[in-house]
């Protein structure tokens, strides 16, 4: 797969989130997963079993770090201890890029441990972009921001979510972790056309794609990561791949976690969409090469 500067030009294929219930299976069977995504905060500890397990995984697999509490959109400065621990883990894992969410979740040192939505305002654009740059400069690797699922909109918003995302990544000069399930969830919750979102993002900045399942309630959808991916989300994924080219893709499954085989089989469905695009890109590449030779 072709990479870009936001994923350190890595050609990672399909991966899944590393979860404790699967450790035993992974160590016993060494399944052919291309890469694992780890939740950084689970391993930002001083010692013990979490780090031992991570080291064992890294003997056989590539890992990429994904955070849940850097809160790029929080108005106040990042916690220095958090940054220090994150950087220490980055050195340990050699993650080629780092991702976290386009959201906020802490204020005055109190943490919600939730991915709270931002108002789509120019003030939030500037502050969020500044914080992303600060984190990237600290960890010295590419950073990608993930669009979140949201259940509320703010009266103060001045633009659409995808306009907000585009402004932030442009000012921060960072990558995007495009979560197509989150786009779908928010599109239902906020009545927009999800394909408009996928069509609007700067394809050249997409470092990684997330796919996942969700739970539909009577009046809204909740991003629960506890079901297979539904067809409308696969359609968004197909379009994203069409626009971005083959991109590192990861299935998230965080609750009511089924067997490793079931999760991995669900993730591998992404290959149906990736393979044709990869072949098409390969043909394009070959044709360009031949044209160049003829020109010479």
């Amino acid at each position: 797969m072709s990479g870009n500067r936001f994923n350190a030009f890595k050609d990672y294929g399909v991966g899944i989130g590393l979860r404790i219930p699967h450790y035993e299976h992974i160590f016993a069977h060494k399944p052919g997963v291309d890469w694992f995504e780890i939740i950084s905060e689970n391993y930002m500890v001083d010692g013990g079993r979490p780090l031992q397990m991570l080291d064992r995984i890294m003997e056989n697999y590539r890992v990429v770090q994904h955070g849940v509490s850097m809160y790029f959109g929080s108005a106040q400065a990042p916690d220095r201890e958090h940054l220090r621990r994150l950087n220490s883990l980055v050195k340990r894992t050699n993650t080629p890029w780092l991702s976290d969410h386009l959201c906020w979740g802490s204020v005055d040192g109190t943490y919600s441990h939730d991915l709270l939505p931002l108002p789509y305002t120019w003030e939030a654009v500037e502050k969020t972009a500044a914080r992303i740059r600060e984190v990237r400069d600290f960890v010295e690797i590419p950073v990608a921001v993930e669009n979140v699922s949201s259940y509320a909109e703010f009266v103060d918003s001045e633009m659409t979510e995808w306009e907000f995302l585009n402004e932030v990544v442009e000012r921060a000069d960072c990558g995007i972790l495009l979560d197509v399930n989150n786009i779908y969830v928010s599109s239902v919750n906020h009545d927009f056309t999800p394909m408009d979102y996928v069509n609007a993002i700067p394809a050249e900045r997409v470092a990684q794609i997330h796919i996942a399942g969700h739970t539909r309630y009577e009046k809204y959808i909740l991003d629960t990561h506890d079901h297979p991916v539904i067809d409308p989300v696969w359609q968004l994924y197909a379009r994203a791949i069409e626009r971005c080219g083959p991109t590192p893709t990861l299935l998230e499954w965080d609750d009511r976690i089924p067997s490793f085989e079931e999760v991995w089989a669900e993730a591998r469905k992404a290959e149906r969409y990736l393979e044709p695009v990869k072949k098409h890109k390969a043909v394009e590449h070959e044709e360009e090469k031949q044209l160049a030779e003829v020109a010479q």
Binding site: N42, V68, S69, D114, D223, T224, D226, D254, D255
Partner: peptide, 8 residues
């Protein structure tokens, strides 16, 4: 004990 994004 594991941190995740699941909001359930």
């Amino acid at each position: 004990r594991e941190t995740s994004e699941a909001g359930t």
